Simulated assay, not measured.
Amino acid sequence: MPLAISNHALRMSGGIERYALTLVRGLHERGIRPVVLAKSFDATLPEYQWVDAIHVPVGFLPGKLRDMWFDWRLRRLKLRLDLRPLIACNQTGAADIAICGSTHPGFLEAMQRPARRIDRWKTSLERSHLENARVIVAHSRLMAEQVQRFYGIHADKIRVLYPPVDALRFHAVSDDAREALRAKLGLPTGRATFLLVSTGHRRKGLDRLVEFFRATDLPVSLAVAGRPIDVAAPNIRYLGYLGDVENAYRAADFTVIASRFEPFGLVGIESVLCGTPIVVADSVGCAEVLREAGGIRFSLADDASFERAIRQALERWRDGSHRVRDVSAALAYDPSVQTHLDALLGEAARIGMA
């Protein structure tokens, strides 16, 4: 029985896509060639050569129906091809191991949005994903708690496994190389630069950050990588879409995560591995694994706490103690790919599917 992974796509994109790519890379290092089922593939990636790809086309359908069609096809392909265990990164009732990197009701609650018909469809599909699976892998305690609260699933079925990060890509560089990157990106001297990586600005809290950085007279600047911004301010800079976001992490002094909803926040761990601490809302999933050397927490419910966090970061920047020199002192878990795979494949063995 071949090991199978399903996801919306195998490509460089958001957090769950990076997670699926990381799993494929880790399995390749072990000599395991999984079956990957997806709506689309980037055939230029090396990972594409390391899998048996099954393309499930959905483009002929209206956008709102594509996830449900994908689920329907996955269920039938799993039975016909005997694909077990199926590690599902997307919402599908075919999952044996359901990866929970988010919950739709949690997103609606955090964004203060009412549930429309499409939201009810998404929640129904997510319920099938979680209830039918043999085990749920939650990417944070926050997600484990939401699975229990919104879906009534018993804690015994849930395993918290924080997601891995590819250390071959995300790692620190020398001080000289870092200074060269700062110059290349045009980051200012004499100011501490805080990096926001965002493709969904409202969820990522860009409005709150702009309000603060526009008004402050502290020696700080905000650099935004990702979707374009419509902001004009002397100490706010747009870096564009970056295929090498790891270099932006290395160049910045801090990465800031002020998201209204962030189930985990891989950017935080990626940043720390690149030597750059984070300033992070305590409601963000990755704050659960942050040690003092890794950064500073603040509360979204207390505007004054954000300014205190920035001032505390500035103190570290001024005395030169802010850089992360020892990842183990900054994070309370091992983000290595193989450690994560050991646990994930251990869950497959535990339910008798390895």
Rank of each mutant, 00 (worst) to 15 (best):
P2L: 06
I5A: 10
R11D: 00
R11W: 00
S13W: 10
G15R: 04
I16E: 06
E17Y: 02
L21I: 02
L21N: 02
I32Y: 08
K39G: 05
D52S: 13
P57M: 01
P57C: 05
V58I: 11
G59W: 00
W72V: 12
R73F: 00
L74A: 04
R76F: 14
D82T: 12
A88C: 09
T92A: 06
A94L: 07
S102E: 11
P105D: 05
A110K: 10
D119S: 14
D119L: 12
W121Q: 15
R134F: 10
R134A: 11
I136D: 09
A144M: 07
I158M: 06
L161T: 03
Y162W: 14
A167K: 13
A167G: 10
H171S: 05
H171K: 09
A172F: 00
A172H: 00
V173G: 00
D176I: 09
R178Q: 04
K184A: 15
G186A: 03
G186L: 08
G190E: 00
F194Y: 07
V197K: 00
L209P: 10
E211W: 11
F213M: 10
F213H: 12
D217M: 11
P219I: 03
S221P: 06
R227G: 14
D230W: 11
P234S: 07
N235I: 03
R237G: 09
Y238N: 13
D244I: 07
V245I: 09
Y249L: 05
A252I: 06
A252E: 01
V256C: 08
A258L: 09
S259Y: 08
R260C: 13
G265A: 08
S271G: 02
C274D: 03
V279L: 08
R291S: 04
A293I: 00
G294V: 01
A301M: 09
Q312Y: 00
Q312T: 13
E315G: 14
R318V: 10
S321P: 11
H322I: 02
D326G: 03
L331P: 03
A332N: 02
D334T: 11
D334I: 04
G346Q: 04
G352L: 07
M353F: 09
